[in-house]
Amino acid sequence: MAEITTDTGVGVRPALARKPSAFLEFFSRLFREKPLGAIGAVVCLIFLFAGIFADLLAPYGFNLIMPINRMKPPSLQFWFGTDNLGRDIFSRILYGARLSVIIGLSAALLATVLSILLGITTGYLGGRFDMIVQRFVDAWMSFPDIVILIVVVSVVGPGMPQVIVVLGCLYGIAGSRIIRSAVISVREQSYIHAAQSIGGTTPRILWYHVLPNVMPPVIVLFTTRVGAVILAEAALSFLGLGVPPPAPTWGGMLTGSARNYMYLAPWMALAPGICLTLVVFSINMFGDALRDLLDPRMRGHR
């Protein structure tokens, strides 16, 4: 009785509906067993926090142009220096975190959900359905990413929702291969046969028996996609097809005028570059730790 206290109607996985302390227990294990992952989680949280409260934290507006303070090196007044138009880079990084986090998380989420849907159904059902769907995936993957991005964005026009949907679909379809191959190996396990022998319907087997066993690659896929999406958005912004200026995105800051002034004002590229690297690295570390901690077979192993 004590094992499940919350409502566990059909469709809710009782395994996930644990005692509230399970959440705290998870974090204590994260810090004890995976210090690097814990650092990653903290760094991600700091950037999330910075993005959410950018309005309060930023010393200047993100588009406040101060012509007398053009290309000032980092100082007490401008922590990360100023850019070629005299805008405070630190403030722009904070506002940029908001955009990058929103784009990164939502596009990666969309991509992962799409990968799971496509990968699990094609991998489990196999046969002709798999054949047909995977040929479309082949066709899709044969185009270079950037070509699809440019074509779609130039048709629908630049803007955040478009960028999220396009990047989500792009990575989601390609990622379905990874999930599919994991599902194919899970499908042949005897516990799947056992699940069939107790009379489970296909959706039920997929949800209860296949999905939990492909979670490790799903988690890794998600965390690597967050990084990839942030970088892809940077590439789009560089081409002028991302989120339109003056909205500050890290990609835009890194690849826009920063390139022209790289020797005069290296801090213009340094700040967004370091932040980008840090966030992508942290998310990957956190994802790795998450994968290990959520695997029940790894419990108790250090």
Partner: peptide, 8 residues
Amino acid sequence: TSLNPSLT
């Protein structure tokens, strides 16, 4: 191998 390793 007949029991699902991820579920209780």
